[in-house]
Write a protein that binds this DNA or RNA. Structure first.
Lengths: 240, 240
DNA sequence: CAGCTACGTTAGCACCGTTACGTTAGTGGT
DNA sequence: ACCACTAACGTAACGGTGCTAACGTAGCTG
């Protein structure tokens, strides 16, 4: 593959060496959107798109993972904004949490390849993970905490974090499968998302009181909740 | 890298050409367990482990993806057995579903790299996906259906499939994050799994009756369920 | 024994991420 | 005005990857 056209990028002035860094990031982001896969975007391809030779990339990024992590950090900064914006237009704590859930899945589907890299890639924590925990998850934890204070979710001695982790896991699972297994029978995606969020919210309200039940009693209790009395018991549920 | 030792594999007899296929699969599986990542196991490395030159692999597998898909198919066949075995020791439909959930996550954590390849890899359906839908998901759908017939979950005109998809998504989300983000604050994994399953089960029992509520009423209804009356309403919930 | 074919090899392409080292150009010191 | 210095980038190349066309060779069948 002869690189016939060589509109070499002009050398940056003395102090502005980091200008190239921004151009590299933008090129990598574009290539990722075009090819739709991390493996398909090579260091060589982003170098050519910028108009620079390949090794120049390594002056601004430690390696390819570092580059990709940088584009993901940028992209996931937008998630923090999306979550905050969704929370703004909400009426109460629960609406806020549900709106965040919808915004999260919307974001994941709109930036599927970045989402895949961050949440389905390697195991080692990256810079993007810092952005996530500090700017994104903190909002979800706060929303869960507000639901607890409002009595919508039962308060827990462990605080809102474990509940938030479960909600996050469930929502992530749906987003991840919608990305990786889009051909599965999801039906209408919007309805599925809504049902999922409802299921999670209802489950959060109940799991505290159900956890102390004997396994044998669980099915009966759920039958009551399902609206069909299993063994004659009608509404009676309460646990101090 | 000089391949100093060359204990060449003896040529297979006339009809037994497929014998090498099994050896390749076994070698690939071992290398995957040793290296712990798909990228780290190369076609060359499995060829050397078997005692054969690289191009010989391509006589039995179309390409590397085909090879990896084959080892995943084998591994996920064991998931079908694990799910069935978990269902056997269950007392009722709900216990069966919960046991399947635990077995699923156990399997995912025990075969994390194969799980990652199957559920976080490319988008195109593979042979492994057939194994999954036919041998694994069918069991979950059946368990959900049994819960519906027993009145533990409300029956839906859409059948058990949408509910099963939601449960699957939630459980997958937890498994996937436990694999990809093990450093997150999960606490005790067993407890987290149990709480997650409980949350999902409770949510499934309720989401049908909650779906028809106005958003404004939802928070109040959940407050009642949480055990703390929000606006004085005590137990009264029912919908035809 | 001849020949055919399944089985495997030799040699090599195109590409990848990455590194050691040479080159250019702007800047500050004297 | 000159010169050393260094930031910014290029040249060349190494080892590795997935993959393939062309070639041999062992073993069964006539």
């Amino acid at each position: 593959m002869a690189q016939s056209t060589k509109p070499r990028r002009r050398r940056a002035p003395r102090g502005q060496g980091a200008a190239l860094r921004g151009a590299i990031l933008e090129a990598a982001r574009q290539l990722l959107a075009e090819t739709g896969s991390e493996e398909a975007v090579s260091v060589r391809s982003v170098a050519e798109k910028v108009g620079v030779t390949t090794p120049s990339i390594y002056r601004h990024f430690k390696d390819k993972d570092d580059l990709m992590d940088a584009v993901c950090s940028d992209v996931f900064g937008a998630l923090a904004n999306a979550l905050a914006k969704a929370a703004d237009g909400a009426a109460g704590p629960l609406d806020r949490l549900l709106a965040q859930g919808r915004a999260y899945i919307d974001f994941a589907l709109a930036n599927s390849e970045e989402y895949r890299m961050v949440f389905m890639g390697g195991c080692a924590p990256t810079n993007t993970d810092d952005v996530l925990t500090n700017d994104c998850f903190s909002q979800v934890i706060a929303a869960v905490g507000a639901c607890m204070e409002a009595g919508i979710f039962p308060s827990s001695p462990d605080g809102p974090l474990p509940v938030a982790m479960r909600l996050f896991a469930a929502v992530h699972g749906l987003a991840a499968l919608l990305i990786c297994k889009p051909w599965m029978p999801w039906g209408d995606v919007g309805s599925m998302v809504e049902a999922m969020l409802l299921m999670c919210a209802a489950g959060c309200s109940l799991e505290g009181s159900l956890a102390s039940l004997a396994p044998a009693e669980l099915a009966g209790e759920l039958s009551v909740l399902a609206g069909r009395p299993a063994r004659g018991k009608l509404p009676g549920r309460r646990r101090a």
